[in-house]
């Protein structure tokens, strides 16, 4: 894969939606442990709506797919994940706009999305949020030179697993303090599904 085309972007969202729907209960269980137990419900509702929206339109550019995903997630997710994922996809759409989404553009997009999410959540790396996964992937992309599914998958996985043994200092889980240690961060797991899906798209589109 040299460029992220419209069909790749659509496939990326469809695969993410499948994983989110399949793991709705699991995400909710994770959020029950250190939050309010709605992350699976929020994400399943949001991505379900994203698929409805995307299936009803014809797209010319990956940027427009990202934009519609962003707008839908913002209004439909309900919890913190709404503005956070909404911001991430909006940044991707802004960076992709008007150009071929080659590796450099894609990698810049993820970087911009990461910065947008950090700003939106006032969060830094290591606070046990989805920022940990996005930053791990952004770093890996920066150090590489082409779409490589394994690099994306492994970096997302390490970001997700790294969220387990640290204390939450942002989001609802922060209210638990030390008791948040030892649990995976739900938002990091849903972000892992997003990047796992991307890795699959890259494999299939190679």
């Amino acid at each position: 894969m040299d460029n992220l085309q419209v069909e790749h972007a659509l496939d990326w969202m469809a695969k993410t939606n499948e994983k989110i729907q399949d793991n709705k209960e699991y995400l909710t269980t994770l959020d029950q442990a250190i939050g309010d137990g709605d992350h699976g419900i929020n994400m399943a509702r949001g991505f379900g709506e994203v698929m409805k929206k995307l299936n009803g339109e014809a797209y010319q550019h990956a940027a427009d797919v990202m934009k519609d995903a962003a707008m839908t997630l913002m209004s439909k997710v309900g919890g913190a994940a709404g503005p956070l994922y909404g911001t991430a996809f909006l940044k991707l759409s802004m960076t992709f706009k008007g150009t071929d989404v080659d590796y450099a553009t894609f990698s810049k997009g993820i970087e911009d999305a990461l910065n947008g999410v950090k700003q939106r959540g006032k969060a830094e790396i290591g606070e046990k949020t989805l920022v940990d996964v996005w930053s791990a992937v952004a770093n890996a992309l920066r150090e590489n030179e082409g779409f490589d599914s394994e690099v994306i998958l492994q970096s997302a996985k390490s970001g997700m697993e790294g969220s387990k043994d640290i204390k939450a200092t942002k989001g609802r889980a922060a209210y638990l303090g030390d008791r948040s240690i030892g649990h995976l961060d739900p938002g990091s797991v849903s972000s892992f599904y997003l990047f796992e899906s991307l890795a699959e798209v890259i494999n299939e589109g190679a």
Partner: peptide, 11 residues
Amino acid sequence: DLGSAKMNAEM
């Protein structure tokens, strides 16, 4: 009221 409401308000 709570943190995530603020994020939506900012947006």
